Amino acid sequence: MVIKVFLATSSGSTAIKKKQQDVVGFLEALKVDYTQLDIACNEENRKWMRQNVPEEKKPSNGIPLPPQIFNEESYCGDYETFFDAKEDNSVYAFLGLAPPPGSKGEEEEEYLEETQEEEA
């Protein structure tokens, strides 16, 4: 599975640039395999991204801004949901990936599974 991060390499917005750098930098720090897809220079990427962001996740103007994150064809979220996942230490779950062995995410996942089993 490959994580796809849709970016605008020639964005005039410093806020968008910072958000994009934050996402890419964090994925690199976690050593997550991802692909950057430019929507500024590639019309196909832009169309695909806009068509595949779920309707309820689109802003009121209907045009989702980068960065947008997908796991293959599955929508993960935008910067805000990525940031929330980062704050909650649930980035692997957000991305739909299994946490690497020994990581904090793996311990969290095991704990959640154990508590769900105890409740059942």
Rank of each mutant, 00 (worst) to 15 (best):
P67W: 08
R46Y: 11
F26L: 14
P54N: 09
V53L: 02
M49E: 06
Y79I: 00
V32S: 04
G105D: 10
E107I: 10
E107V: 11
P59C: 03
S60F: 10
E55F: 08
L97W: 09
F83W: 04
L37K: 09
K58H: 11
C76I: 00
F82W: 12
D33G: 11
N89M: 07
N71Q: 14
D84L: 11
R50F: 10
E73I: 01
R50A: 06
E55I: 05
S74C: 00
V24C: 14
A98V: 09
C41Q: 15
V32H: 12
P54G: 09
N45E: 09
V91H: 04
I39Y: 02
G62W: 05
P66F: 04
A85E: 06
L27T: 04
E87M: 06
Q51D: 08
D88A: 08
V32K: 07
Q36T: 12
E44G: 05
P54R: 13
P66C: 09
N89Y: 11
N71W: 07
Q51S: 07
N45C: 10
C76V: 02
S90N: 14
Y92K: 01
S90Q: 13
V32Y: 10
Q51L: 13
Q68E: 07
E87S: 05
Y75P: 02
G96D: 09
L27C: 10
E72A: 04
V24K: 15
C41F: 15
E108I: 06
G96T: 03
F94Q: 01
Y111L: 07
M49I: 04
G96E: 01
N71S: 05
Y79C: 00
S74Y: 14
E108C: 05
I39V: 14
V91Q: 04
V24T: 14
D88G: 03
P99Q: 03
P101F: 08
E113M: 08
E87C: 09
C76R: 08
E80S: 13
N52V: 07
F94P: 00
P99G: 00
Y34F: 15
E73S: 05
L30W: 06
V24Q: 15
V53C: 02
E28W: 12
V32L: 03
N45K: 13
R46K: 07
E56M: 01
L30Y: 05
P54C: 09
T81H: 06
R46S: 03
V91S: 00
L65H: 09
E108Y: 15
E113N: 15
F94G: 01
E55M: 05
S74E: 08
D38A: 02
L97T: 06
L97S: 01
K58T: 09
E113G: 07
T81G: 07
P67L: 03
